[in-house]
Design a binder for these strands. Structure first.
Lengths: 343, 343
DNA sequence: GACGCGTTTGCACACCTGTGCAAAACAAAC
DNA sequence: GTTTGTTTTGCACAGGTGTGCAAACGCGTC
């Protein structure tokens, strides 16, 4: 530790295995083997090497290791709207799980303009990532195709392409959205509405469709409103649209908790409505804010921990890129709070 | 594009510059130079190379490039509580800015146990990151010391160590906290309190101290309460402690918006208090939720964009590791909303 | 001491790139 | 056609690592 102090002067001078070998009086191979699991080194040399490494401040160069071993231990996370409660939670859990699996996360932000997205996504190829996890609905299918063509292991989350190659993980949007309908019905709601964004990602439109379908089966009409990005402000804006009408809805399914928060705030603070007495609201995702006492939102919990665990366990499996993988489904269970009347 | 389809079968077979060279009928150097800015290649060969590269699906291997050029173009983001609104926003902005500068972000989650933190932080050395940006208050100074010893370029955000080497970026907590005091005073508040966590990071305790100091100068007492992590639930819990007393405060400075949201919710929903009529609240950070109509929180805005821009501009500068860098300060301006009575 | 066997070690090659250097190609001027 | 100057090209090396292979070693047995 103290011996390394001197290297502070000429910075960016990393220690190589060669230097460790010289100090320890062994060959460079011995050093390499000491830091490779399952390699054959005697206890004596191992000890000498570790001492020298500690003294010099040696750290295996993973760039070089990845170059030769075809495993960079880097996993790309491709994600839009990073600052969103849902996505940031996902990143939180995934990074932690990846670290436990001795991997490291590279975050690719795809929020910007399309061409910058493309160049960003290319990083996953540049750095020979072990896998690419697509959390974003945004990137065009063609870009994912590019990754696949280069032998990338792609894992899609909440997308619904049916192309050969990528594995897919989705939550059971359909079942949950249908249940949302019945929750509102049992609460006695007569005039139903769906609040959605016009982003058109698979999860958003999937939930919307399933809810409408369930209503139709029960012989009910549903007003669907799509507006803006999937955000708080859009939910508030839709509330203004919907609640100023004389036949305003008394039961609302927001395809996202963020939309629900905006909707509830506008309903209460701008229209003076009581929730759940005059208006029932169901959300989706169970973000942290859904549990805040200003909302107490009844919603569906995405099992983020399970999803992350599954994803990380899949990374090292070599997928067959010729077949279409059946999506792995996770159930989203309802979380009862206070935005829906108990039946 | 179509030619690459065949490579889908034997996966993880990346194309090398050698293969491109052979297909284009040039030397490998020509390929390398084509993808290196400012290298000398004739227009004719450049075109041949680009065609061959496109056909084969070639992508420069940044692991190998980083190995030789001593620039990995990887920047580590060391961060705790990733899912927090403030931190996730920071990550959002930083990743975007980094990508514009042709760098890529590696996210190191330091929320877990201490030893896992250590191994995670070591990744920044393993991958020879160009710089390490420490957004977290958590990691022990000794770990940062390790990075510095290995010639890492370390940039600290909102920490207040005074060690030689790392550059530091901080917001002017002191000035803002003092202004918070005067805002509450001008609103006529008589019984002041500070709501803080017991995490003890530099920003949290710095704001707390400056507020108390300003009060003392004005001859006023302040009740300081520290509890739990810096989170919504802690704010609510502190509200229960503080507001159940007969001499409850009528003016509160929460060192974080998240604490403020929890405090406000408990004050209103559990104690029936009106804000700002009976209780004024000032926060810090200006997270998204501060602008939601359930809160309308008067707070101080951290200039995240400016901070991120500055940080990214510093990355390529080679810092002098022997001197103590004067911290770069950013001003946090007040954002007036409705949680403080207008004077 | 000779032999046999299992473990450890060093050599040398491979991985994929950037770049200095000298040779080659080219363009221009006479 | 020769000379001069400029641009382009290929060779060969460097960068730090993992690993197959054969040699060396250690050790127990006859």
């Amino acid at each position: 530790m103290t011996a390394a102090k001197g290297s502070r002067l000429q910075s960016r001078s990393f220690v190589s295995a060669q230097q460790v070998a010289e100090r320890a009086g062994v060959s460079r191979s011995a050093v390499s083997r000491t830091f490779t699991d399952g390699a054959s080194v005697s206890e004596a040399t191992r000890k000498k090497v570790l001492e020298a490494a500690e003294a010099l401040g040696y750290h295996v160069n993973h760039l070089a290791r990845g170059l030769i071993s075809d495993r960079s231990n880097i996993v790309s996370l491709v994600v839009t709207d990073i600052a969103t409660p849902y996505q940031s939670k996902m990143i939180e859990v995934l990074t932690r799980r990846l670290q436990l699996a001795n991997k490291v996360a590279m975050v690719i932000n795809t929020s910007g303009e399309t061409d910058s997205v493309e160049s960003a996504l290319r990083q996953t190829l540049h750095y020979r990532a072990d896998a690419t996890i697509v959390l974003s609905g945004q990137p065009k299918a063609s870009l994912i195709e590019t990754c696949l063509n280069n032998g990338q292991h792609v894992i899609l989350v909440n997308r619904e392409e049916l192309v050969p190659g990528p594995e897919t993980v989705i939550v059971a949007n359909r079942a949950a959205a249908r249940e949302a309908f019945h929750m509102l019905r049992r609460a006695g709601c007569e005039r139903l509405a769906v609040v959605a964004s016009d982003v058109g990602s698979a999860s958003v439109s999937g939930r919307e469709r399933a809810f409408v379908e369930a209503a139709k089966e029960a012989g009910m009409e549903v007003r669907v409103t799509r507006f803006g990005p999937t955000a708080y402000a859009s939910g508030a804006e839709i509330a203004r649209l919907l609640l100023s009408r004389s036949d305003r809805p008394d039961g609302v399914f927001c395809v996202t908790d963020l939309l629900a928060c905006g909707f509830m705030d506008a309903a209460r603070n701008e229209f003076g409505l009581n929730i759940p007495e005059e208006l029932c609201v169901v959300g989706f995702d169970d973000i942290e804010q859904a549990g805040w006492s200003s909302y107490e939102l009844t919603t569906f919990r995405q099992p983020i921990d399970q999803i992350a665990t599954h994803i990380v366990s899949q990374i090292d499996h070599q997928p067959d890129s010729r077949i279409v993988h059946e999506p792995v489904r996770f159930q989203a269970d309802p979380v009862w709070r206070k935005s829906v009347r108990p039946k």
